[in-house]
Computed example of a mutant assay.
Amino acid sequence: MTTTDTRARFRDLLAAEWIKMWSLRSTYGVLAAGALICVGITTNSARSNVALIARSTSPLQRTALDPMSAAFLDEAFQILGIVACSVGAITVFGEYASGLIRTTFTAVPARRPVVLAKVVVVTSIMLVFGAIVSATSFGVTQAIYHQEHIGLSITAPGALRAVAGSALLAPLCALVGMALGAVIRHAAGTIVAAVGLLLFLPALFQGETYRWVKEIGNAMVFPAWQALVKNSAHQIPSIPGRPTPGVDKYPVTLTEAWIVFAAWAVAAVVVAVASVTRRDP
């Protein structure tokens, strides 16, 4: 007597999660809006900077601007991170809110492969999304700065690193959102927790008085991202009569930044898997 193996293949789970992801109209709208807002902010900033340089009679105005950092503004990519976090979170708490999660786990009792399939699908989609936004922001802003002959190419020192780091920010924040969604399982609570964890919490660990405080802040997602997009080759000139710009006593090194990215991604996946597999729907 033979038995039929009814366990779902992982590729079937991937296909199911892909269909779930794109069956929501909100997915298209949120991703499109997030991309337009992010690129719109950096583009508008670049146009304003170019206009300011053109009107200025001081040569320091041109050299004080770092075109690379200006292509990856904090405000723009903080919005990108929250958008990505929201998309990741809704793939988890959305099923709990609708009750679909019970059907899913009835069809596939092995919960861990279901969650891992979600992780793969969300990470893949958000990586492409992040790469498109990052590359577009860099390309458009540098084309604008080229009008004043200060634009950078992708081969400039640190440029590829900045584009790659900004592209990886989207899937990383999406994984954080999945972990928060799996733990909290409530839309409003998850979004509030995401904003607090990604944006507000790092602000509590700033300053140079105590190194251990700053090191905690350096282990957060956005401080690590800022280290990746910072143009270390660009030096802000000192202005006569004004103090020299301060130097961070405890900066995030590039190696530390990549480690922070990897650690947060792994931790988010572990939390998401553990929360779903060890708790009832």
Rank of each mutant, 00 (worst) to 15 (best):
A187W: 11
E17K: 02
N49K: 10
A8H: 07
F222P: 00
I19A: 14
I150M: 15
G196Q: 02
L175W: 06
T106P: 04
Q61I: 13
A70Q: 15
A135Y: 11
S166W: 00
F205I: 00
P59E: 04
A174T: 06
T244E: 11
A233Q: 12
S232C: 00
L31M: 15
W225Y: 06
V213E: 01
I132T: 07
I41R: 04
P243H: 11
A267W: 04
K230T: 14
M68K: 09
I79G: 09
A203H: 09
P240W: 13
G40N: 13
A194I: 10
L36T: 14
A263D: 00
R102K: 14
S153M: 08
R112C: 08
I101M: 09
R9M: 08
G88I: 06
H234Y: 11
V39R: 10
L168W: 03
K20W: 02
H234P: 06
A174V: 05
A64N: 09
V133M: 09
I82P: 03
F138S: 03
L197K: 04
W225P: 00
Y145A: 11
H186I: 04
G158R: 10
G181H: 06
S26W: 12
R11E: 05
V114F: 02
L127E: 01
L116R: 01
A76W: 04
S232E: 13
T255A: 15
S238Q: 15
A46G: 03
I37P: 10
A257D: 01
E256W: 12
T190K: 07
S124L: 13
M68Q: 13
T43I: 10
A188G: 15
G151Q: 08
V229A: 03
A89L: 08
A267M: 04
I154C: 04
G29C: 13
A179D: 06
F205T: 01
A188Q: 05
L175M: 11
V115P: 05
R9P: 06
F72R: 01
V195R: 06
A71F: 01
